[in-house]
Design a protein around this nucleic acid. Structure first.
Lengths: 233, 233
DNA sequence: CAATACCATATCCTATAGGATTTTATTCGG
DNA sequence: CCGAATAAAATCCTATAGGATATGGTATTG
């Protein structure tokens, strides 16, 4: 039949010179739902109706179920038999503490390793990501936070990349997905402190000082945690 | 129509007093494929034919695709558009190193925390899991390894449970899945050393000595890594 | 003999239809 | 007025069918 006209061709531009395998419908659906989760269009805990998605994305049920299964495997979605899918529940206080405990075990060490392998090019990239130049005021609060969140995530991810352990990087990025949703829910205000802490890290990196980088990262994470903690009141 | 008779009723006994929602077909299929992966019935890198599974499990394609999607989200299965699904490739040397680096960052700390919250009951459970009594010889090599692998996994998981951080526990268990497959591929022989190292940990736990437990775990992991390293030659 | 083109098969991908179960709304009785 | 039972609707779950694409073998040609 094939009378329908899928409206969600994401079609990644495949920069890395591979065979341009056009992505499957299931893959496109996955990205679409993922985006909705990240943008809080589907809030935490809300039910996800398959039929609605059928009409909205103009695609049949099968690829949607496949995509939802994948999201379930990643922990972003929960399935209950004969009830259906729903977005993963809001992060709880306990999980929040556990996450920062995990970050404190992994990221300071990664900062130290990154410091040891630092060079001018990497440093420049980090400076860019740190958003030192992003201190402009006057923009509205929402855009301001959105910019900061992206920069902060990029900054930390760069450090993990330079540390050289892809497994740790993937692990933390995975958790960051949940974390991002949490932060969005609370519209946590951006403080200038975070940027100062980033600069402290940059200074350590510039000097190639591993132990200083480790310590700076530890301080940064602890402050970050304390800044977000009031959200649970 | 429903003329078929599914042959894979796993039907978990739901010990934890919840509503006895009989698990969905997709869930049963997931468990069946998962078991085949863990038992190396589907070796790493091998292609996974959906039609074969249809005939083998006597179930239609849809729940199979949903289950495969979930396995993909967990990283145990890889999908290539218009090619199909295949089991995740064998763990590479690099990933092996990264895994032990991750474990060395997380598990010693967990051992220390577990030591602090130790009591008689937990200690008894750990002794049980440590397999101190499992030193019997005479059994065949294969069963012997299988027993050890299960005990070792249980032992480490118990420690993580007592450490109190569920997120870390989940993270490591997730990785352990891949690791298990790796170990099975190489039929790595069980040495008595591992059991000695477990006993050293138990001693530290019995004394409630956090730093001793941390150190013992670090030593155990490093030795474990070195014992498996020859597999890459 | 080697390389290329072509065709048949296998496999994947998507769409549609129908049965099973839960949820919700309505009605009746206390 | 409240609670329980019943009926209807919504939703999920599974099965089947057909189109699209890749793979592998065979024949043909240089």
């Amino acid at each position: 039949m094939q009378t329908r006209t899928p409206t969600i061709h994401t079609e990644a531009p495949d920069t890395s010179g591979f065979i341009p395998r056009s992505n499957s419908l299931a893959g496109s659906v996955y990205e679409a739902i993922f985006a909705q989760l990240m943008a809080l269009k589907i809030p935490p805990g809300a039910r996800i109706n398959v039929d609605h998605l059928v009409r909205e994305l103009n695609v049949s049920q099968t690829p949607i179920r496949e995509a939802l299964g994948r999201l379930e495997g990643e922990g972003l979605v929960v399935k209950t038999h004969l009830i259906g899918y729903s977005a993963a529940p809001q992060i709880a206080r306990r999980r929040f503490d556990e996450l920062y405990q995990l970050r404190l075990l992994l990221e300071p060490d990664s900062a130290a390793r990154a410091a040891l392998s630092m060079d001018d090019e990497k440093l420049a990239t980090l400076r860019e990501a740190a958003g030192v130049m992003g201190r402009r005021d006057g923009t509205d609060e929402r855009l301001r936070y959105s910019t900061f969140a992206r920069q902060d995530a990029m900054f930390h991810d760069c450090i993990l990349a330079y540390a050289g352990n892809e497994l740790i990087r993937e692990t933390l990025n995975h958790q960051h997905t949940h974390f991002h949703i949490f932060r969005l829910m609370f519209h946590s205000r951006v403080t200038e402190e975070a940027l100062d802490e980033h600069e402290a890290l940059l200074t350590a990196f510039a000097a190639g000082d591993a132990s200083a980088a480790e310590k700076a990262m530890r301080v940064h994470l602890e402050h970050s945690r304390d800044r977000l903690l009031p959200a649970f009141d």
